[in-house]
Design a protein around this nucleic acid. Sequence first.
DNA 1: GCGATATACTTGATATATCAATTAATTAAA
DNA 2: TTTAATTAATTGATATATCAAGTATATCGC
Lengths: 134, 134
Amino acid sequence: MKNTIPFLFAINKTNAVLSRRLSGHGLDFSDFTILYHLNAAPEGKLRRIDLADKLGLTASGITRMLLPLEKLHIVERDASDDDARARYASLTPAGKTLLQDATATIEMKTEDFFPETSEDELAKFIKLLDEINK
Amino acid sequence: MKNTIPFLFAINKTNAVLSRRLSGHGLDFSDFTILYHLNAAPEGKLRRIDLADKLGLTASGITRMLLPLEKLHIVERDASDDDARARYASLTPAGKTLLQDATATIEMKTEDFFPETSEDELAKFIKLLDEINK
DNA sequence: GCGATATACTTGATATATCAATTAATTAAA
DNA sequence: TTTAATTAATTGATATATCAAGTATATCGC
């Protein structure tokens, strides 16, 4: 039997530590994640449910996370042409600028996170995590 | 420059997914983590601040997490002999029983998480995460 | 085409964590 | 040795997520 539990503990702890360490520009790490995914998406927009899936959150969680970002005009909200239930989220120009700044900060803060881990190993770990996330 | 950010996203998402998937016996995954660490500690007890460190939380967070567990007589609270500021947390007999049950459930649920990952790789991954957590 | 199901999203009630401030005790330092 | 700095824990105010329930729209099966 594989010793999975300590592995889960480590993920849990890393998450807690990162959440506290990687905030800046008025954004916490989850906010940053949202901005990043919106920017990377085709046409720069995502349905709220797809955004929820990218973060592993519920639809409800995304509704609540987007609220302050919309209020600050960092993210905007659009109807969908082909599905009246769906709403798109996308970055405003201010949101794009903010994302650039936040990305620079986070890249700086995380630069030395894995001094001895190769790009290959990192990719393998991501694949492993994605396996769980399915 | 290493592509660290997608790795952080994956951790974040796995954490969210696990938190939702691995609850049972009235415990969420963080509760389970607390019980597990208390049981594994020398003499079955830990100072609250050390418990916080194990989970990567703040002292405040631990105070609040322990509250309902103490109320339900799963965890109990003791003074320290040599430091009047510190309080120990430890499992009650009911807490130990509950931990056993919860462990069985979680092991069952996570059994097939890494079908193709060796024990070695898992250990390497844990080491990598611990590096970040320091 | 129409009724049953499923999907996208929001809201109310609640639980979980944070930070900043506070209290109390310990340790360091002058 | 008594003042200053640090540490452990708690609390108030606040932010983040959950689940369950509800609304509106889409889709599936017949």
